[in-house]
Deep mutational scan, measured.
Amino acid sequence: MAEQVALSRTQVCGILREELFQGDAFHQSDTHIFIIMGASGDLAKKKIYPTIWWLFRDGLLPENTFIVGYARSRLTVADIRKQSEPFFKATPEEKLKLEDFFARNSYVAGQYDDAASYQRLNSHMNALHLGSQANRLFYLALPPTVYEAVTKNIHESCMSQIGWNRIIVEKPFGRDLQSSDRLSNHISSLFREDQIYRIDHYLGKEMVQNLMVLRFANRIFGPIWNRDNIACVILTFKEPFGTEGRGGYFDEFGIIRDVMQNHLLQMLCLVAMEKPASTNSDDVRDEKVKVLKCISEVQANNVVLGQYVGNPDGEGEATKGYLDDPTVPRGSTTATFAAVVLYVENERWDGVPFILRCGKALNERKAEVRLQFHDVAGDIFHQQCKRNELVIRVQPNEAVYTKMMTKKPGMFFNPEESELDLTYGNRYKNVKLPDAYERLILDVFCGSQMHFVRSDELREAWRIFTPLLHQIELEKPKPIPYIYGSRGPTEADELMKRVGFQYEGTYKWVNP
């Protein structure tokens, strides 16, 4: 592979701008107003304001973009700056750019259920340069409990009458099928589907988006991507930290609602779906819905739930269990780990287990898709061969690698495990991989909904998990304890083995 010439960040961002501006969906010269509902909250200060700053800094926003914060707290732009700027990672050389960014910011205080507050917000936006005809993007960085009041008031008082209007809704989209349907029906009564952007930030990850290209742009994968060759698929999300004093919020939802029903299920769809007619948003989402419709409700015998306990040999936070978090209700049975087996009941995947695993306070930070292939028929190497695996590593250190057998150097035919490896950090030294939120917010500006969740996708996802969630809430089974920093409950490994996964433990990928 030829040595790549190092590029400056300015040059890299210039390439990104060229890609972005050559499309006809990006209205570079139009006025846009980006409204952050819930501007005083954690999500706004840690993710949304920093993301908008990065896009502005790199010249990736339309030229005439204004940012308006809205929340109940009586704040000023200076207050917003004070709480969000520490997350910007701005350099001293960017000081003038930073001043320009905050000059485009404003803030309006108001209630979430008060019509007069929204009329005041609308008047404020109209007073901005060309504000009355601007395109408006409303980001709901809010708890779902206020979605209905907020969307109703936005629709009645704050819509642009000339430009387009788009609304970005953060997960969780309800707690179960019934609450999700209620919320979807409410929002759909106010906005068209092409105006609604239900954001799952995992769909903005580079390697998640790469799944489609790997599958449908490489001839070698087509013939082997089926039940005849693939023994099982494992989708993993692991965090090495616990709730760390923020367990009160987590306890309301648990690990299945927080990660599995959305992030992991979306990745499953991209692995299992048929080739779409095109890369058009609805063509892709149509195929994802077909996959979900082929999955039956989760069966309790295919589920393992766990909850982390303190590690007596650990240090600091590792010595504390979930129930030691003062914000967690006493005696909570909320799971911090889950392993679930699903089956896609169609011709391509009949009988292939899709194993979804996620948890907190585990032994490493990792998100990946792992396809394990069947054993080689007619073994001539005296059971020395391990199964081939194709691994798409989402985070950290984005990579695609194939675990395969090669001859060990020497005189004899002794096979050993090795890999074919594409590590993004080595291959793409001159490429700026956008943060997931950067990519998705740019998608909203461009009107691309491919990486957002459609209402029928959402409904099918909740259909699969709601009976299990209701059973857990009714019966309150005690989750299996696992030690902070471990791989999780051993019962999860036993479940995976029972459905056909072979864990060798003899080879570990190392970032080159």
Rank of each mutant, 00 (worst) to 15 (best):
S132M: 14
G131V: 09
L61H: 01
I168R: 05
Q209P: 04
R182M: 15
P144M: 02
H129S: 13
N165K: 09
E93A: 13
Q22N: 15
A25C: 15
N165H: 10
L20D: 10
A44L: 03
D194C: 09
N218A: 04
F253W: 02
A141Y: 03
R215L: 04
N165S: 14
S123T: 13
S179G: 08
S189D: 11
Q83V: 12
Q178T: 13
L137E: 01
G248R: 06
I255Y: 02
D42S: 05
A39E: 01
A90S: 13
A6Q: 15
R104G: 05
A109I: 13
H32S: 10
I162K: 12
A103H: 15
N226Q: 08
F88I: 13
R120D: 14
S180N: 10
I48N: 00
Q11R: 15
I224L: 14
E94M: 07
S189G: 14
S184T: 15
A44G: 04
E148G: 10
K47L: 06
L20C: 06
Y197N: 05
A25V: 15
G174R: 02
Y197K: 00
G247C: 07
Y118N: 06
Y112K: 00
V150T: 10
D251V: 01
Q178R: 13
M212H: 00
R175Q: 10
A109F: 11
G59D: 08
I15N: 08
G69T: 02
G254P: 03
A44T: 05
D228N: 09
V146N: 05
D200L: 03
P240E: 10
C232L: 05
F101L: 01
A115F: 15
R9K: 15
W225G: 02
I230C: 06
F26N: 11
A6L: 15
D194E: 13
E170K: 01
P92L: 10
A71R: 04
W54N: 09
A44E: 00
L183Q: 01
Q178H: 15
V108N: 06
F21L: 13
T65I: 11
D58F: 10
G69I: 02
A141D: 02
D100I: 09
N126A: 12
G248W: 01
D228S: 11
L130V: 15
V12E: 09
I33S: 06
S160Y: 09
A90P: 08
F26W: 15
Q178M: 12
F34G: 01
L130D: 09
R215P: 02
H201K: 01
I234M: 14
N122E: 12
P144R: 02
E99P: 04
Y249A: 04
G204T: 00
S117D: 14
Q161Y: 15
N105L: 10
N229G: 06
F173H: 04
Y49V: 05
A231G: 08
G41F: 03
E206P: 08
N185M: 11
S29Y: 15
A231L: 04
I230A: 05
R9Q: 09
D79R: 08
E252C: 09
Y112M: 02
T65H: 04
Y118D: 04
T236D: 08
D58W: 08
T31Q: 09
M212S: 01
S132Q: 15
R192W: 10
R182W: 09
E63W: 09
G247H: 06
F26S: 10
Q178Y: 09
K82N: 12
I67G: 01
Q209V: 06
I80T: 05
Q11G: 15
F216V: 03
Q111K: 14
A149N: 14
G23D: 15
H27A: 13
Y112V: 03
I67A: 02
D24I: 10
T243P: 09
L203R: 00
A25R: 15
F138Q: 03
I199P: 00
D24G: 14
E206N: 07
I255H: 04
G222T: 12
A217L: 00
I255D: 00
I168K: 00
H129N: 15
Q22A: 13
R136L: 05
L20Q: 09
I35G: 04
D58H: 14
S106N: 08
G38N: 02
S157C: 14
M212R: 05
L96M: 11
I154H: 03
D251T: 06
I220Y: 07
V12M: 15
R81H: 07
D100S: 14
A134V: 15
R17V: 13
M159E: 15
R198G: 00
I167G: 01
H201T: 05
L183M: 07
F221K: 01
H32M: 06
F221D: 00
Y112C: 03
G69R: 02
I15P: 06
I15H: 09
L98G: 00
I33K: 01
H27I: 13
L60E: 07
I80Q: 08
F21M: 15
F250L: 01
Q11A: 15
L20F: 15
Q119K: 12
M125E: 00
N226W: 05
V12Y: 15
I80D: 00
G248Q: 06
Y49W: 09
L130F: 10
Y147Q: 02
P240N: 12
E93N: 14
R219G: 12
D113Q: 14
S132H: 15
Q161K: 15
S73D: 00
R9L: 08
E252W: 06
K47F: 04
F253P: 02
T51V: 10
L211W: 02
K82W: 10
K46N: 03
A115S: 12
V208K: 03
Y118G: 06
Y139R: 03
P144W: 03
G14K: 15
I52T: 06
F56M: 06
Y118V: 07
N229H: 11
D114H: 11
N122C: 14
E252H: 15
Y249F: 04
F191M: 09
N105V: 10
I196W: 00
E18H: 12
I167C: 14
E94Y: 07
A231N: 09
R246Y: 01
R17F: 15
L214G: 02
K171C: 02
Q195K: 06
K205P: 02
C232F: 01
Y202F: 07
M212Q: 03
S29I: 15
F216Y: 05
S29L: 10
M212D: 02
N126I: 10
R81K: 12
E244F: 14
S40Y: 03
K171D: 02
L214F: 14
P223R: 07
G23E: 15
G254F: 02
F173E: 04
L60D: 02
P86T: 08
A6T: 15
V169C: 06
R198K: 03
G38V: 05
L55E: 05
K238P: 02
F34M: 12
R120I: 14
L235E: 02
D181M: 10
F66W: 10
L121W: 01
Q22K: 14
D100R: 14
V68H: 01
H27S: 11
P92Q: 10
F34D: 04
G254T: 04
V213M: 11
D176H: 05
V68Y: 05
V233G: 03
F237D: 03
F191Q: 03
R17L: 11
L203Q: 02
E252I: 09
D228G: 08
Y107W: 08
F102E: 03
Q111A: 12
F26A: 09
I48W: 02
D194R: 10
R57S: 06
A78G: 15
F88M: 15
N126M: 13
Y70M: 12
M159F: 15
T76H: 10
S40L: 04
R136Y: 15
I168A: 13
I196K: 03
V68R: 03
K171H: 05
D200A: 01
L183A: 02
D58T: 09
K171N: 01
L98C: 07
E148T: 14
M159G: 08
S29C: 15
G204F: 00
T236Q: 10
T76N: 13
T10C: 09
H32C: 08
R72Y: 02
E85T: 12
L190N: 09
L60W: 07
